[in-house]
Every structure is written in C-alpha cells, then in structure tokens.
Amino acid sequence: MTYFADKHPLLADIFSRYPDSPQGRRSALMPLLREVQNAEGFVSEARMREIADLCGTTATEVRSVMSFYSTYHTLPTGRYHLQVCSTLMCALAGSDELWDHLVSVLDVQPGDVSADGRFSVQKVECLGSCGTAPVVQLGDEGYYENVTRQKCDRLIAALRQDAPPPPDNPVPVTVREDGRQMTAAGERVGASIHDRKPLPAGGDR
C-alpha cells in the first residue's frame, strides 16, 4: 500500500500550506519527504515515486532534491547513525583518519548496517561546528565534538552497550512537529504552523 493512501487529512494539511498552483504543489516536496523519513527511517524508491505523483513532478526530481540533504536516507540506517563531518575544518583536524578508524572498527561501509543492526555511517558536509572539529553527529540527537581517537573508542564502546553518552551539544536548532523551531538552549522561536493566517488577497502590502 502507498504510504499516504490513508492520510488524507495530513496531505490536505501539508498542501494547504502552499499556493494552489503547479509550483505550489511542488513546494510540498520537503514536508512529504520528511514525513516518510520520520515514519519509516528512509525513503524508498517506491515512496519517491509516490511523492512525485503527489507533487506533480518526477521521481528523478524527488531523488535529486532529497539526495542534496544528508538527513534523508534512501536505505535503512542502523540504530546509531553516525555522521562524520568531512568538510575542510574537520578534515584539517583529522576527520579522514577518524572516518577510517570508525569504518574499520565498526566494519561497516556507507549504505550498510553493521551485522548487529546497531551502526551505520555517513560522511556529511559541514555541521556548523567547525570550532570544535572534528565533529560526529549521532542520529538527530546531537554532536560529539573534538572527537579524538580515544573519545571515538569510548563512544563506540558506550554505543555497543546501548548507553550513548549525552552529546556535547544537542543539534543546534530542531524543528518541532508544529513547525516551530527550538534552539539548543530549549528556547522556542518562530511561529507555529497553527499561527498561520491566510495571506491578504493581492499580496502582502
């Protein structure tokens, strides 16, 4: 069955956030992707096609958009999805070596899940925490910073015990279900989707 077949209210809600035009329909691409990713942990090819039909575009287009973001996955991930920043600052601080160490110790390659179902790894672009390079992000939880070899080994050992240490920093800004953002300090900022008011006819003057 298709994912959205029995979710008409949700679809109606998502599409209502955008203008009722071909371009507007395309804009719904991101929330639809996020919905599937959150629910299933990855977006399969069948789901890409389904989203493409909903948005009036092609699966190629959907894959192109989603592959731009490292937070969407085309394959299932492990329980602990480790994202290693490989952009310049982290690279200068040894992220290449960190990566090599990680994949050889965990014996897992990008796209795979380790045999115990725990680990998957991914190289990502700058996580915006260059001052504490090298940085590893765990799932959507947060950042481990200044990851030296010892710290990496401790982290792996803890994860093998299913006792992930608290991240040095939670992910800086998270988006809540209602569209409101929350900073790492727990402060809620921005508007919720429930505060939306229709735009005045003829544009916002």
Binding site: M48, T57, T58, A59, T60, E61, R63, S64, F68
Partner: peptide
C-alpha cells in the same frame, strides 16, 4: 521531460535518472 537531474551535492554530484 524532467527525467534527468543532479543527484547528491558538491564534489559528489552526478547526473542520473530515476525513471
């Protein structure tokens, strides 16, 4: 026909179709 697009980003970008 929107059958070709960039996949991935940065230095890893390549051209592909999902059709």
């Amino acid at each position: 026909q929107e059958v070709l697009d960039f996949i991935e980003r940065g230095g890893h970008t390549f051209i592909d179709t999902e059709e």
